[in-house]
């Protein structure tokens, strides 16, 4: 939504309110129009785009998805704001240092997107146009989901975040944090070994941005450590 042209729809109203610099003539709060529930079926979990982050923290997730609760908590360390921010807003803003965005890219759920007409798209391929109506997470056989964050203190944004999803037929690794774009890599093996790690490193190292926590060479070393730890979590 945030990337939509025109001034009508702006994703993540909570972010908008903080800006205070736009003259708003008419306001249509999407939250009221979006479904705010999590529905659990046998092979999938569907989240309305209007689900707020605190609801995601408190939800009794099936074991495979437990990491989502943590990611929702960590991507917004203030409970006050978690009560306000929605899943849809979080995805629409698509901050690279949002653990929820990083983790969801690893899961690559199907989105129902409303534009001129409704369509279904995978998150990783989504252009950012349209309004997300809901997010469907499929429960895959043998799935594992892991997220690792690196920040100076728990309430600070991660300067590096890595997520991994693995299932019987493959795995998907996402690198975010202070980066100029998310790196999403898919492998057709569930083993996230040295070769795969090398490929992720190769792909992601150019996205790492230097900051006051360290330069690119530090970030690269940290990423190597993070990927090793991800291997332990996914394959151990």
């Amino acid at each position: 939504m945030s990337r939509t042209t025109g001034a009508v729809l702006i994703g993540g109203g909570t972010y908008l309110a903080a800006e205070r610099d736009s003259e708003i003539i008419r306001l249509i709060p999407l939250k009221a129009h979006l479904q705010g529930e999590i529905t659990l079926a046998r092979d999938a979990v569907t989240l309305g785009a209007g689900v707020d982050l605190q609801t995601m923290v408190e939800y009794a997730w099936p074991e495979h998805f437990q990491a989502l609760a943590e990611a929702a908590r960590e991507s917004c360390p203030s409970m006050n704001i978690r009560n306000q921010r929605t899943l849809g807003g979080e995805l629409a803003n698509s901050r690279f240092d949002s653990e929820l965005v990083i983790l969801l890219h690893a899961l690559n759920p199907r989105l129902s997107v409303v534009q001129a007409q409704e369509s279904t798209e995978y998150l990783v391929e989504w252009s950012g146009d349209g309004i997300i109506r809901d997010v469907m997470l499929e429960i895959a056989p043998e799935m594992r989901l892991k997220y690792l964050r690196f920040a100076p203190i728990p309430s600070a944004l991660p300067f590096l975040g890595v997520a991994g999803f693995s299932a019987a037929d493959g795995c998907r690794i996402v690198v975010g944090g202070n980066v100029d774009s998310l790196s999403v890599l898919e492998f057709d093996t569930k083993d996230f070994g040295a070769k795969q790690q090398e490929l992720v490193l190769e792909h992601a190292e150019d996205t790492l941005l230097p900051d006051h926590f360290g330069g690119v060479s530090y970030k690269r070393k940290l990423l190597m450590t993070a990927l090793t730890r991800l291997e332990d979590a996914l394959c151990g």
Binding site: G13, T14, L16, A17, A18, I24, R26, L27, P29, K31, A32, Q54, S78, M79, N80, I81, N83, Q84
Partner: peptide, 19 residues
């Protein structure tokens, strides 16, 4: 600026009157 909105704490500075 915490207020309770339907029993939940939220930040009034992030809420626009239109909502």
């Amino acid at each position: 600026c915490t207020v309770l909105v339907d029993d939940k704490p939220q930040n009034a500075c992030l809420m626009l009157m239109g909502t």
